[in-house]
Computed example of a mutant assay.
Amino acid sequence: MTSETDLVIIGGGPAGCAAAVMAASVGLTSTIIEPRARLGGALWRIATIDNALGGHRTGPDLAAAVLADVERAAPDIVHAAVTRIDATDHSVSVTLASGRQIKGKHAIVATGVAPIQPHDAPWIMATTPMRLSPLWDADAAGAVGQTWLVLGADRPLGTFLRANPALDVKLLVPHPPSDSYKTDEVADDPRVTLIPVDALMVDDDLVAQPGNLRGDQTFTNIGVAPVAIHGLVHDADGYCPIEGQHPRVHIAGDLRSSRGQRVQTAMGSGAEAALSAYYAGRS
C-alpha cells in the first residue's frame, strides 16, 4: 500500500514537530512517521530546561505546547518504524517495517539519537552484552537513600541534579578522562563522586572494576549515537550532515551532528528543513 503527501517527516521529536508546523504554515501537507506511541521525543524526559524560548521550564510542559501546535497543523501521523528511504529526481519513497510505502515530494529525516550502551563504549569491557536504562529515564522518587552507579559523565547528569536539588542520593560516576570537561557543572555537588578511569570492567552482577563499584541501581550515561536509516549519507561517526544528501532529503535535529544537540536548535532546524522543501518546490 502506498500513500502520498508533500512532505514525509521521519521522526516525531522536537525537530519533526517543528517541521510539520512550518509545513502547514506554507500550505504543504505532511505525514509524520514516529515509532513511539506519542510525539515529542526527548522532551518528555527532560526534567528541566533553561535554554528554550517560550517560558517552558520542563520538557513535558514544552511537549504539551508543541503537541497542541502539531494538532492545529493537522499532519497525518503514522506510528511505525522506517527501514529505508529512497529518493529520485521527482519524489522520495519511505518504506516502513510493514512493507508499506509513503511517498512525498520531499522528506525530512529527524530520527535523532539513542543512548550508547556499555558494550558499545571503547572504555568499558562487559562480560556479556547488557542494556541499561539511560539516566534520563531514572525515577527520582525511587532514589531516596540509595547509591546509584552511573556509567559515564554525559550532560544528563547535570540535568538530573538540577531537577532534583534536594534529592538524597549518592552517585558513583566512573568516566573516561576525555569526558572530564563535561563534569564542571557537577564537580562541587557533594552527592556526586567522579571517578576518572582509563578502562572499566563490568561483570554480570553490575559490579564495576577498578574500585569494586556497586549501586542499588545502575544507569548508562555514556553519551548518544545517531539513529540513521538505510539510504542516507552518513559520516564516520554515523551522523548524517545536511551536505551530501539527495536534494529531496533534508536532515534536521540531532541527526545532523554531535554539536548543537539542544531542543532550541533542533526545532529551528526542523522549521528550516520544511522551508527548504517549500522553496525547492517553487524553483
Rank of each mutant, 00 (worst) to 15 (best):
24 A>I: 03
17 C>P: 08
57 R>F: 02
46 I>T: 11
21 V>D: 07
56 H>D: 06
12 G>S: 09
64 A>T: 15
37 A>M: 11
13 G>R: 08
22 M>W: 14
5 T>Y: 00
19 A>N: 03
20 A>F: 02
47 A>G: 15
63 A>G: 08
68 A>E: 14
32 I>W: 04
36 R>V: 15
65 A>N: 11
43 L>V: 08
36 R>L: 14
57 R>I: 03
28 L>F: 07
57 R>M: 03
34 E>Y: 10
5 T>L: 02
29 T>Q: 11
30 S>Q: 01
42 A>I: 15
26 V>H: 11
26 V>C: 08
32 I>C: 01
25 S>P: 04
67 L>W: 09
6 D>R: 00
62 L>Y: 07
12 G>Y: 13
4 E>A: 10
24 A>P: 02
64 A>S: 09
34 E>K: 12
24 A>D: 07
30 S>H: 02
9 I>V: 06
66 V>S: 05
20 A>Q: 00
28 L>N: 06
18 A>S: 15
36 R>A: 14
42 A>Q: 13
57 R>Q: 00
16 G>P: 11
32 I>Y: 04
32 I>S: 01
52 A>R: 12
26 V>Q: 07
66 V>G: 01
51 N>S: 02
63 A>N: 06
50 D>M: 00
37 A>W: 15
60 P>A: 01
52 A>K: 08
18 A>M: 11
53 L>C: 05
35 P>L: 13
53 L>H: 13
60 P>F: 03
12 G>I: 07
37 A>C: 13
46 I>L: 12
35 P>W: 14
41 G>R: 08
48 T>H: 12
11 G>K: 12
29 T>W: 04
48 T>D: 06
30 S>K: 02
27 G>M: 04
35 P>E: 10
30 S>T: 01
70 V>T: 06
29 T>K: 11
42 A>H: 14
6 D>H: 04
41 G>C: 14
29 T>Y: 02
8 V>Q: 02
15 A>W: 02
43 L>M: 12
57 R>E: 05
50 D>F: 00
6 D>N: 05
47 A>L: 14
13 G>A: 13
38 R>K: 15
61 D>T: 12
45 R>F: 13
22 M>G: 05
24 A>Y: 07
4 E>Q: 10
60 P>R: 01
37 A>H: 14
33 I>V: 15
64 A>C: 10
27 G>W: 06
56 H>L: 01
